[in-house]
Design a protein around this nucleic acid. Structure first.
Length: 388
DNA sequence: TCTGGGGTCCTAGGACCC
DNA sequence: TCTGGGGTCCTAGGACCC
């Protein structure tokens, strides 16, 4: 029988702020921006702040209204990463098989560790204590025979929660779960479910797979049917085959000026390019995203015969995509650039293109990136990006 | 209230090939 | 002149998650 832990750090960013600023303990702390920051959203709210109805992804301006006296901070992501690394290292003492899902959560495959550590429940308590003593932070843990159930369980009794779902009880567990706690059912699907007369997991459980597929489609229907039975085999942590690298930016004020737009596109391109260098990958597919002032969002993408060779190449492709899609004159609140389906840099090109100019530019850029790796304090940027 | 940034996966339609 | 079925790749949009 398999045993998985899903470990989730409680209100992670906000907790780190309270840890590093003891005066903020017991106070509402909101990470995401300062009052007055346009277009910011709440990244994490401390439990004290949640009492005011504040939650992640809420517009910051709303949070300011709900709790003007909260402590607002923009976030110190390097610090969070540092603590995350230390906590992940603690997990490694408990299991050789740790799958990190994000900066603040991980699965531990604990199968077969009972002989070594004792009962799973006791081990989970020890792990919580261990993290608390070593870092001052609290975690919630779900224990179950599948990753999917463990994942849901960890979220049920936060903070500092421990929820164990005994093997064989998966279906009972799911049938008592409120619909909105089912992982994979978001707002839209919840509404579809309600509109179709489903208000609980039990309602879903009582219907045939066939019926669910008819109402919700092949895929979602099957997912619903299996999920409420605890059969969801959703396996996390497998290497994704269509990796992508993207950078996007919401601007404080809408862009309409051509020069400003191009500068923005260049900046986004450089971000993506630098990260592709760090991962030693390349891509043939460039995607561009435009969000207009009314929040409507469009995208274009193009797969070329050759991989993106260098910054100028990327920038030219960006501009072409932009011109293909942009409705002239509209205000732009967000631009995004992505390279899709990245693959190993060593992969030979389909057809070799002997453009020495491209090759030379690519080599110069590699050298610049290498220098930036060695001296992160030096920022090398295109002249047009040095403004303001 | 007015909506971040980084991702993954799914759907549906079209092009193209056998 | 009308028109199958399957597979693969590509594109645009959307749902969802942290």
């Amino acid at each position: 029988m398999n045993v998985f832990f899903h470990v989730d750090l409680d209100a992670f960013f906000a907790s780190v702020e309270q840890l590093d600023n003891p005066a903020w303990k017991g106070k509402p702390v909101i990470v995401g921006g300062l009052p007055g920051d346009r277009r910011a959203v709440v990244s994490t709210a401390s439990y004290e702040a949640r009492k005011y109805g504040i939650h992640s992804a809420m517009p910051l301006s709303r949070a300011v209204q709900l709790c003007p006296n909260a402590v607002f901070v923009r976030g110190r992501y390097r610090r969070y990463q540092e603590l995350s690394d230390r906590i992940m290292a603690i997990f490694a003492n408990y299991s050789p098989d740790v799958t990190q899902m994000s900066i603040d959560e991980a699965f531990l495959d604990m199968t077969g560790t009972e002989r070594l550590f004792g009962k799973a429940e006791d081990t989970a308590r020890r792990l919580q204590e261990d993290v608390k003593v070593q870092t001052g932070l609290s975690v919630s843990i779900g224990v179950a025979a599948t990753m999917y159930i463990a994942k849901i369980a960890s979220g049920l009794h936060k903070p500092n929660g421990l929820t164990v779902v005994a093997a064989g009880n998966e279906s009972d567990f799911m049938r008592r779960l409120p619909l909105e706690k089912v992982w994979g059912i978001g707002g839209k699907t919840q509404k579809r479910l309600r509109d179709a007369g489903f208000f609980s997991t039990e309602d879903v459980y009582s219907k045939s797979k066939k019926l669910l597929q008819t109402i919700f489609g092949e895929n979602t229907g099957t997912f619903l049917y299996e999920a409420v039975r605890g059969n969801e085999g959703m396996s996390f942590g497998e290497e994704a085959k269509n990796h992508s690298i993207s950078s996007e930016q919401t601007y404080d004020f809408d862009l309409t000026d051509r020069y400003a737009i191009e500068t923005a596109l260049m900046e986004l391109s450089m971000n993506v390019l630098y990260r592709m260098h760090k991962e030693q990958v390349k891509s043939r597919t460039l995607a561009l995203k435009i969000r207009y002032e009314d929040f409507s969002t469009v995208s274009v993408q193009e797969t070329g015969d050759f991989s993106i060779a260098h910054a100028d190449d990327m920038f030219e492709r960006c501009k072409r995509l932009f011109d293909r899609k942009y409705e002239h004159g509209r205000g732009i609140r967000l631009l995004g650039v992505a390279c899709e389906k990245v693959y190993d840099r060593q992969t030979p090109e389909q057809k070799s293109l002997f453009d020495f100019g491209d090759e030379k530019k690519a080599r110069i850029e590699e050298a610049i990136y290498a220098m930036q790796d060695r001296h992160p304090e030096i920022k090398i940027r295109k002249a047009r990006m040095l403004g303001d």
